[in-house]
Write a protein that binds this DNA or RNA. Structure first.
Length: 271
DNA sequence: ATTTGACCCTGCATGC
DNA sequence: TGCATGCAGGGTCAAA
């Protein structure tokens, strides 16, 4: 379940092996991803040069020739660097073979991810056009959360996970940020004070930045193929810990469903 | 307009 | 041991 830190770590891990390289071959073993792999993918990529891989929200953007690949890892997708001759495993759906025996290999058991072309620029493509700011950019702050939440009755956790508000805050990090900020995930977004939103925005930045930093230490995984980038060994306070004791107060963590997502929190530390 | 819910898919944990 | 069931999750779209 790649969240933003995993996607960013993937970008950093694969970029040195791709940038400036020419694509020699494209192998698609399974076209039925979330959206079908474009029929012209192979023809359009072969012989073209790869530019600098970028990221917007959880989307990877990889310039190739005059076009740009838009790659989303969905829930179970991963990209890694394989070597020529390494046999594909089950669910290895797409290979981009570049010079010097390097293969960018896409693995995705649930096929919620996709690879497609960017239509227009990064800000024009319909999938990216309405996205909110990056959580680690200056455009994201407590003031924005406060302003956009006025009058909304939606619970703060799904509000925080709304990509029009801020991108890249998935279920894990939303739960962790709300714990750090001491805010009950069920609280209506419109009934939270500006001060508390300032704290929440800071908590979002903290958990994401820490995860990206930790991801940097596992970059070797993209080369050796040992293990897949999943969650980082980040110490989670609440996610996945329902029924266990709160690390801060010792009370029992509770689970509620918000927006059809499991939401674990500490009733004593979060109000 | 805002909010809710179904859907896509497979692996894994659980219970019988 | 095998089987059925439920859950997990991001993004998209339809419905309330």
């Amino acid at each position: 379940m790649p969240e933003l830190p995993e996607v960013e770590t993937t970008r950093r891990g694969i970029a040195p092996y791709l940038q400036g390289r020419e694509i020699r071959e494209v192998i698609v073993r399974e076209r039925r991803l979330r959206t079908p792999v474009p029929v012209d993918l192979e023809d359009a990529l072969v012989g073209r040069q790869i530019g600098e891989p970028g990221r917007r929200a959880k989307y990877l953007t990889i310039p190739v020739g005059t076009r740009t690949l838009l790659w989303h890892l969905g829930m179970s997708g991963s990209l890694r660097i394989a070597r020529l001759g390494e046999l594909p495993k089950k669910h290895d759906h797409v290979d981009l073979v570049v010079d010097d025996g390097v293969i960018l290999r896409y693995h995705d058991p649930r096929r919620f991810g996709f690879v497609d072309w960017l239509r227009g620029g990064v800000s024009d493509d319909p999938r990216l056009a309405r996205l909110g700011p990056e959580p680690l950019s200056p455009d994201f702050d407590g003031e924005r959360l406060y302003r956009l939440s006025r009058g909304r009755r939606l619970a703060v956790k799904p509000f925080l996970m709304d990509n029009a508000v801020v991108v890249g805050v998935g279920n894990i990090y939303a739960a962790e940020a709300l714990f750090l900020a001491g805010i009950d995930p069920r609280r209506p977004a419109g009934r939270i004070a500006g001060e508390r939103y300032a704290r929440l925005a800071e908590a979002v930045r903290e958990v994401l930045a820490a995860a990206i930093t930790q991801g940097g230490t596992t970059l070797r995984d993209f080369v050796s193929g040992v293990g897949e980038p999943g969650y980082f060994a980040q110490r989670l306070n609440v996610y996945g810990r329902a029924g266990e004791p709160c690390r801060r107060c010792g009370g029992e963590l509770r689970n509620v469903t918000l927006g059809q997502r499991a939401s674990v929190f500490c009733p004593r530390c979060q109000s």
